[in-house]
Design a protein around this nucleic acid. Structure first.
Lengths: 198, 198
DNA sequence: TTTTTAGCATAACAAGTGTTATGAGGTTTT
DNA sequence: AAAACCTCATAACACTTGTTATGCTAAAAA
């Protein structure tokens, strides 16, 4: 087992504790116990807790980015954009766990401007990918030329984030199908096919 | 000064610390120092920290609910719904502070199912108010009869939450005008005026 | 006026925190 | 085979945490 894999094991143990117990109860000792060893392992692979947290945060955002990028294999079009945005909706237990970790981090980042800025950087990457997608759709005339793509990218991500949050904060939350439906409707609205006769 | 006001003072001091330092660094001592007194005050008005946190959480959600309800003074219509939803967008520093406290609580509630359930109850209230508004609009034929109002209420709140979050997690976030614009466009879509010829 | 209570400061408590040093045992390198 | 190193357990460190008990002062009630 490589050194890199061991770091991942620690990070994933941290995930599990965060999802189950919450970020503030995720102590070094709790992570070690989850992994079935002592804190020696944790301190060996991470200089301090801050580094561990940032690493785990990166794991979260990178996993979301990858899931989204994987959808770009399909041919350009509405479905591709839809699938890209849907890639990080909480439609199964894994992504629901990711969502919880993500939210825990966001809450933790409140009042910690440097940490929030770190996350903003990842969010900017995500926004960039979506923007490129929108630009591609605009260049093939699927989106009208007068549409503000920066605004649309933000709005689309906002909707996706809101739909994700809905899963955690609403008791009667949207089903996976409804999540997709809400996103789909919004994406459809973006297309000149539907808006050309406005 | 009444006993009730004193509790509010403590709670508001807690808010300020949370926004500035983060929830996990909001200790009893920090709150007391923010208020300019000792922990004796805090422990006198709140049995334990849990009670203080739940009280402050309630203050957050109630303030949002009130701000929204205040908009119902206007006459029924698109503008009223729009203003109700916009009432808790982070369009000024006060509401931006409320947003931070809210997010801190959400992150804190991850892994604490009872606390999350508590928040879901408040969220359900909010959803109910929006649903009533949608029903009113439907009854005056501003929304088509075949529209699923439960789904729409969730979707609308999801969009609003997402737009709010966008303010914190996106460096290039939406301006107050853009926030409103995004909501407005979505609300417009709900109206039969725009969807009748689909 | 006496007594009771509310409001608050102070201090101490046990528990849990991140961090660090030390060292043992195994693996790789030289 | 010897030296260097990686992996990890153990233990101790200085702090911070929420909570509780004690007591003082001023206001209210008797």
């Amino acid at each position: 087992m490589s050194q890199r894999d061991r770091r991942l094991e620690v990070s994933e143990a941290a995930w599990r504790v965060i999802v189950r117990e919450g970020l503030d109860r995720t102590s070094m000792r709790a992570i070690a116990q989850e992994l079935g060893c002592t804190t020696g392992v944790v301190t060996h692979y991470f200089r301090d807790k801050q580094e561990l947290i940032l690493f785990a945060l990166n794991q979260v955002t990178q996993s979301l980015l990858k899931a989204m990028q994987a959808q770009r294999a399909q041919e350009l079009g509405v479905e591709r954009l839809l699938n890209m945005v849907s890639a990080f909706l909480p439609q199964d237990v894994e992504r629901q766990a990711v969502l919880k970790v993500w939210l825990a981090f966001l809450g933790y980042a409140v009042g910690r401007d440097s940490l929030m800025a770190e996350h903003q950087q990842s969010a900017a990457q995500l926004r960039e990918v979506i923007m490129q997608e929108l630009q591609a759709l605009q260049s093939v005339k699927l989106i009208r030329d007068d549409v503000d793509l920066e605004l649309e990218a933000n709005a689309l991500l906002a909707l996706a984030n809101g739909v994700s949050l809905d899963f955690l904060i609403q008791a009667k939350h949207l089903s996976p199908e409804q999540q997709q439906q809400v996103i789909r409707r919004y994406v459809d609205e973006l297309l000149s096919i539907h808006t050309s006769y406005l």
